[in-house]
Amino acid sequence: MATDAEGVIVGATAGGVPVPGEGEVYALAVTDGSRRRGVGTALLTAATERMRDHGALDQRVELPAAADPALPFYTRLGFSALSPTRWSRPLAP
């Protein structure tokens, strides 16, 4: 979870390692007023570190649609297509 200076929640993420070696981003959300300020990147970075700590060697995310608005965010961070809505990236140790 991410909060602003007043303690208001501005973003949250959820993820895990449901299959040995494979991290999964279940959800990542940032409020409209906090987008493009590094909140999503910070949340994903923290989730990624937890996944690495639990043995993840790659990370995946399923988007609701092939043209999802979050797609540029994920591709900028190194995710590539496994299918039109499923994306993955390797996690360096």
Rank of each mutant, 00 (worst) to 15 (best):
A2W: 00
T3Y: 09
T3F: 05
A5V: 14
A5W: 11
A5Y: 11
I9F: 07
I9Q: 06
G11Q: 14
G11M: 12
G11N: 13
A12L: 15
T13K: 04
P18R: 01
V19Y: 03
P20V: 14
G21P: 06
G21T: 06
E22F: 05
V25D: 03
V25P: 05
V25M: 07
Y26I: 08
A27G: 03
L28Q: 02
A29K: 01
A29Q: 01
A29S: 08
V30M: 01
S34G: 08
R35V: 09
R35T: 10
R36F: 12
G40D: 10
T41L: 03
T41C: 09
L43T: 14
L43G: 04
T45R: 08
T45H: 00
T45W: 03
T48A: 02
E49Q: 13
R52K: 02
D53E: 15
D53I: 00
D53R: 13
G55L: 00
L57V: 11
L57P: 00
L57W: 13
D58L: 13
Q59L: 15
Q59A: 10
V61P: 09
V61E: 01
A65T: 11
A67K: 00
A67N: 12
D68K: 02
P69V: 10
P69L: 01
L71M: 13
L71V: 13
P72M: 08
P72Q: 00
T75S: 13
R76M: 11
G78E: 10
G78N: 05
G78D: 07
F79D: 13
F79G: 12
S80N: 12
S80D: 11
A81I: 05
A81G: 02
S83D: 15
P84M: 02
T85I: 14
T85Y: 00
R86A: 07
W87P: 05
W87I: 06
R89Y: 11
L91V: 06
A92N: 04
P93M: 05
P93Q: 03
P93C: 02
